[in-house]
Design a protein around this nucleic acid. Structure first.
Length: 260
DNA sequence: ATGTCACCTGCGAGGTGA
Protein backbone atom coordinates (compact mmCIF):
# COMPACT_ATOMS: atom_id res chain seq x y z
CA UNK A 1 0.00 0.00 0.00
CA UNK A 2 1.05 3.54 -0.83
CA UNK A 3 1.21 5.99 2.11
CA UNK A 4 1.90 9.68 1.48
CA UNK A 5 2.53 12.79 3.57
CA UNK A 6 2.09 16.34 2.31
CA UNK A 7 1.88 19.74 3.97
CA UNK A 8 -0.63 21.32 1.58
CA UNK A 9 -0.55 24.84 3.14
CA UNK A 10 -4.29 25.48 3.11
CA UNK A 11 -7.03 23.27 1.61
CA UNK A 12 -9.00 26.27 0.30
CA UNK A 13 -6.03 27.55 -1.69
CA UNK A 14 -4.85 24.06 -2.72
CA UNK A 15 -7.98 22.05 -3.57
CA UNK A 16 -7.35 21.83 -7.31
CA UNK A 17 -3.65 21.04 -6.83
CA UNK A 18 -4.45 18.33 -4.31
CA UNK A 19 -7.11 16.80 -6.58
CA UNK A 20 -4.70 16.74 -9.50
CA UNK A 21 -1.99 15.08 -7.44
CA UNK A 22 -4.34 12.47 -5.92
CA UNK A 23 -5.55 11.61 -9.41
CA UNK A 24 -2.07 10.80 -10.68
CA UNK A 25 -0.28 9.51 -7.55
CA UNK A 26 -3.33 7.64 -6.22
CA UNK A 27 -2.03 6.92 -2.71
CA UNK A 28 -3.99 4.45 -0.58
CA UNK A 29 -3.53 6.75 2.40
CA UNK A 30 -2.69 10.46 2.28
CA UNK A 31 -1.72 12.44 5.39
CA UNK A 32 -2.20 16.19 4.98
CA UNK A 33 -0.93 18.94 7.27
CA UNK A 34 -1.73 22.64 7.55
CA UNK A 35 -5.23 22.26 6.14
CA UNK A 36 -5.94 25.65 7.79
CA UNK A 37 -9.61 24.81 8.08
CA UNK A 38 -12.20 23.79 10.64
CA UNK A 39 -13.61 20.26 10.25
CA UNK A 40 -16.80 21.52 8.54
CA UNK A 41 -14.76 23.57 6.05
CA UNK A 42 -12.77 20.59 4.79
CA UNK A 43 -14.35 19.36 1.52
CA UNK A 44 -14.59 15.69 2.54
CA UNK A 45 -17.37 14.99 -0.03
CA UNK A 46 -15.06 15.87 -2.91
CA UNK A 47 -12.57 13.24 -1.77
CA UNK A 48 -15.27 10.71 -0.92
CA UNK A 49 -16.48 10.97 -4.53
CA UNK A 50 -13.09 9.67 -5.69
CA UNK A 51 -13.05 6.78 -3.25
CA UNK A 52 -11.51 8.12 -0.03
CA UNK A 53 -12.67 7.89 3.55
CA UNK A 54 -11.81 11.12 5.38
CA UNK A 55 -10.88 11.91 9.00
CA UNK A 56 -10.18 15.52 9.95
CA UNK A 57 -8.79 17.30 13.01
CA UNK A 58 -9.16 20.93 12.02
CA UNK A 59 -8.70 24.38 13.50
CA UNK A 60 -9.76 27.85 12.39
CA UNK A 61 -7.14 29.59 10.27
CA UNK A 62 -4.04 27.66 11.29
CA UNK A 63 -2.65 24.14 11.64
CA UNK A 64 -5.07 21.24 11.12
CA UNK A 65 -4.43 17.69 9.88
CA UNK A 66 -6.46 15.24 7.79
CA UNK A 67 -6.12 11.62 6.70
CA UNK A 68 -7.62 10.34 3.44
CA UNK A 69 -7.82 6.57 3.06
CA UNK A 70 -9.15 4.13 0.47
CA UNK A 71 -9.48 1.64 3.35
CA UNK A 72 -12.16 2.28 5.98
CA UNK A 73 -11.02 3.59 9.36
CA UNK A 74 -11.26 0.98 12.14
CA UNK A 75 -10.46 3.71 14.65
CA UNK A 76 -9.62 7.43 14.69
CA UNK A 77 -7.79 9.26 17.51
CA UNK A 78 -7.63 13.06 17.45
CA UNK A 79 -5.08 15.08 19.43
CA UNK A 80 -1.67 14.26 20.92
CA UNK A 81 -2.08 12.94 24.49
CA UNK A 82 -0.25 14.57 27.38
CA UNK A 83 -1.60 18.14 27.66
CA UNK A 84 -5.36 18.72 27.96
CA UNK A 85 -4.78 22.50 27.68
CA UNK A 86 -3.17 22.23 24.21
CA UNK A 87 -5.77 23.64 21.80
CA UNK A 88 -3.67 23.31 18.62
CA UNK A 89 -4.79 20.67 16.07
CA UNK A 90 -1.60 18.93 15.03
CA UNK A 91 -2.19 15.19 15.49
CA UNK A 92 -4.52 12.49 14.18
CA UNK A 93 -4.23 8.68 14.09
CA UNK A 94 -6.05 6.15 11.96
CA UNK A 95 -6.06 2.37 12.33
CA UNK A 96 -6.64 0.16 9.28
CA UNK A 97 -7.17 -3.55 8.68
CA UNK A 98 -4.88 -5.02 6.00
CA UNK A 99 -4.41 -8.62 4.78
CA UNK A 100 -1.44 -9.14 7.13
CA UNK A 101 -3.26 -7.67 10.15
CA UNK A 102 -3.38 -4.01 11.13
CA UNK A 103 -1.52 -0.81 10.20
CA UNK A 104 -1.66 2.38 12.25
CA UNK A 105 -1.00 5.69 10.51
CA UNK A 106 -0.16 8.76 12.62
CA UNK A 107 -0.34 12.16 10.91
CA UNK A 108 1.55 14.99 12.67
CA UNK A 109 2.18 18.70 12.15
CA UNK A 110 5.00 19.30 14.60
CA UNK A 111 5.27 22.91 15.85
CA UNK A 112 7.64 25.21 13.93
CA UNK A 113 9.20 26.72 17.08
CA UNK A 114 10.34 30.07 15.66
CA UNK A 115 11.23 32.55 16.96
CA UNK A 116 13.44 30.62 19.36
CA UNK A 117 13.39 33.38 22.02
CA UNK A 118 9.60 33.13 22.27
CA UNK A 119 7.35 30.64 24.06
CA UNK A 120 7.03 28.81 20.71
CA UNK A 121 10.40 27.08 21.00
CA UNK A 122 9.78 25.45 24.43
CA UNK A 123 6.29 24.51 23.16
CA UNK A 124 7.93 22.70 20.24
CA UNK A 125 10.37 20.81 22.47
CA UNK A 126 7.59 19.91 24.94
CA UNK A 127 5.41 18.69 22.05
CA UNK A 128 8.28 16.46 20.89
CA UNK A 129 8.56 15.07 24.42
CA UNK A 130 4.83 14.24 24.37
CA UNK A 131 5.23 12.62 20.94
CA UNK A 132 8.06 10.47 22.32
CA UNK A 133 5.80 9.28 25.15
CA UNK A 134 3.04 8.38 22.67
CA UNK A 135 5.54 6.53 20.43
CA UNK A 136 6.81 4.52 23.42
CA UNK A 137 3.23 3.45 24.07
CA UNK A 138 2.64 2.52 20.42
CA UNK A 139 5.90 0.55 20.28
CA UNK A 140 4.66 -1.60 23.16
CA UNK A 141 1.88 -2.90 20.88
CA UNK A 142 4.57 -4.42 18.59
CA UNK A 143 2.51 -3.55 15.51
CA UNK A 144 3.38 -1.88 12.21
CA UNK A 145 2.86 1.89 12.38
CA UNK A 146 3.96 4.94 10.44
CA UNK A 147 4.37 8.45 11.84
CA UNK A 148 4.01 10.68 8.81
CA UNK A 149 4.09 14.42 8.66
CA UNK A 150 5.73 17.80 8.70
CA UNK A 151 8.22 17.40 11.56
CA UNK A 152 9.70 20.90 11.18
CA UNK A 153 13.03 19.19 11.90
CA UNK A 154 16.10 19.14 9.63
CA UNK A 155 17.70 15.91 10.90
CA UNK A 156 21.30 16.39 9.66
CA UNK A 157 23.49 18.92 7.77
CA UNK A 158 22.99 16.73 4.66
CA UNK A 159 19.32 17.70 4.73
CA UNK A 160 19.78 21.44 4.17
CA UNK A 161 21.35 23.38 1.26
CA UNK A 162 23.36 25.61 3.63
CA UNK A 163 23.67 24.39 7.24
CA UNK A 164 25.34 27.62 8.39
CA UNK A 165 22.32 29.67 7.30
CA UNK A 166 19.98 27.53 9.43
CA UNK A 167 22.06 26.90 12.55
CA UNK A 168 20.06 29.21 14.81
CA UNK A 169 16.67 28.31 13.34
CA UNK A 170 14.24 26.25 15.44
CA UNK A 171 14.17 23.62 12.66
CA UNK A 172 17.91 22.96 12.97
CA UNK A 173 18.88 24.01 16.50
CA UNK A 174 20.94 21.40 18.40
CA UNK A 175 18.14 21.00 20.99
CA UNK A 176 15.66 20.20 18.21
CA UNK A 177 17.93 17.71 16.48
CA UNK A 178 18.81 16.04 19.78
CA UNK A 179 15.15 15.63 20.66
CA UNK A 180 14.40 14.23 17.19
CA UNK A 181 17.32 11.81 17.53
CA UNK A 182 15.95 10.60 20.87
CA UNK A 183 12.66 9.87 19.15
CA UNK A 184 14.33 7.92 16.32
CA UNK A 185 16.53 6.12 18.86
CA UNK A 186 13.44 4.52 20.39
CA UNK A 187 13.73 2.21 17.40
CA UNK A 188 12.18 4.05 14.46
CA UNK A 189 13.36 3.99 10.85
CA UNK A 190 13.44 7.05 8.59
CA UNK A 191 11.79 5.52 5.51
CA UNK A 192 13.40 7.95 3.07
CA UNK A 193 16.92 7.49 4.47
CA UNK A 194 16.45 3.71 4.50
CA UNK A 195 16.04 3.94 0.72
CA UNK A 196 18.29 6.89 -0.26
CA UNK A 197 21.68 8.05 1.01
CA UNK A 198 22.35 10.94 -1.37
CA UNK A 199 22.54 14.37 0.33
CA UNK A 200 20.40 17.41 -0.51
CA UNK A 201 17.08 15.68 -1.09
CA UNK A 202 14.53 18.31 -0.08
CA UNK A 203 10.81 18.45 0.73
CA UNK A 204 10.39 22.20 1.34
CA UNK A 205 11.47 25.32 -0.52
CA UNK A 206 10.51 28.74 0.83
CA UNK A 207 8.30 30.95 -1.33
CA UNK A 208 10.80 33.77 -0.82
CA UNK A 209 14.01 34.73 -2.58
CA UNK A 210 13.71 32.21 -5.43
CA UNK A 211 14.43 29.28 -3.12
CA UNK A 212 12.86 26.72 -5.50
CA UNK A 213 14.73 28.02 -8.55
CA UNK A 214 18.05 27.95 -6.64
CA UNK A 215 17.23 24.59 -4.98
CA UNK A 216 17.63 26.21 -1.57
CA UNK A 217 15.58 23.53 0.18
CA UNK A 218 15.38 21.56 3.41
CA UNK A 219 14.15 18.05 4.23
CA UNK A 220 11.59 18.33 7.04
CA UNK A 221 8.75 16.01 5.97
CA UNK A 222 9.36 12.50 7.21
CA UNK A 223 7.87 9.02 7.52
CA UNK A 224 9.17 7.23 10.61
CA UNK A 225 8.44 3.50 10.85
CA UNK A 226 8.05 1.07 13.72
CA UNK A 227 10.26 -2.07 13.43
CA UNK A 228 7.27 -4.08 12.19
CA UNK A 229 6.58 -1.46 9.50
CA UNK A 230 10.26 -1.13 8.55
CA UNK A 231 10.29 -4.87 7.82
CA UNK A 232 7.61 -4.21 5.20
CA UNK A 233 9.16 -1.09 3.60
CA UNK A 234 9.43 -1.41 -0.20
CA UNK A 235 10.29 2.14 -1.32
CA UNK A 236 10.15 5.78 -0.33
CA UNK A 237 10.48 8.77 -2.64
CA UNK A 238 10.07 12.52 -2.68
CA UNK A 239 7.71 13.78 -5.40
CA UNK A 240 9.15 17.24 -6.05
CA UNK A 241 7.13 17.85 -9.20
CA UNK A 242 4.17 19.67 -7.60
CA UNK A 243 6.53 22.40 -6.32
CA UNK A 244 6.86 23.55 -9.93
CA UNK A 245 3.12 23.69 -10.61
CA UNK A 246 0.91 26.78 -10.58
CA UNK A 247 -0.02 27.95 -7.07
CA UNK A 248 2.14 25.34 -5.32
CA UNK A 249 2.40 24.49 -1.65
CA UNK A 250 5.86 25.27 -0.28
CA UNK A 251 6.13 21.56 0.65
CA UNK A 252 6.01 18.50 -1.65
CA UNK A 253 4.64 14.97 -1.06
CA UNK A 254 6.76 12.11 0.25
CA UNK A 255 5.41 8.69 -0.75
CA UNK A 256 6.28 5.25 0.61
CA UNK A 257 5.24 1.75 -0.36
CA UNK A 258 4.49 -0.77 2.37
CA UNK A 259 3.98 -4.49 1.67
CA UNK A 260 0.86 -5.49 3.56
C1' DA B 1 17.04 40.95 0.18
C1' DT B 2 12.80 44.46 4.13
C1' DG B 3 12.31 39.18 -0.74
C1' DT B 4 6.21 35.31 -0.60
C1' DC B 5 2.05 33.14 0.46
C1' DA B 6 -2.34 31.99 3.11
C1' DC B 7 -5.80 33.19 6.34
C1' DC B 8 -8.28 36.33 9.37
C1' DT B 9 -11.32 40.51 9.89
C1' DG B 10 -14.71 42.57 7.33
C1' DC B 11 -14.83 45.61 2.83
C1' DG B 12 -9.53 47.85 2.98
C1' DA B 13 -5.38 46.76 4.21
C1' DG B 14 -2.90 45.37 8.20
C1' DG B 15 -1.85 41.44 11.61
C1' DT B 16 -0.30 36.65 12.29
C1' DG B 17 2.10 32.50 11.09
C1' DA B 18 5.29 30.10 8.43
Amino acid sequence: MKIATWNINGIKARLETVQTWLGSASPDIACFQEIKSVDEGFPAEIFEEIGYNVAVHGQKGFNGVAILSKLPFDEVIRGLPGDPDDAQSRYIEGVFSVPSGVVRVVDIYLPNGNPTDSEKFPYKLAWMERLKARVKELLSYEEPFVIAGDYNVIPTPEDVYDPAAWISDALFRPETRAQYQKLVNLGLTDAFRACHDEPHQFTFWDYQAGAWQKNHGIRIDHLLLSPQAADRLVSCDIDAEPRGWEKPSDHVPVVMELAV
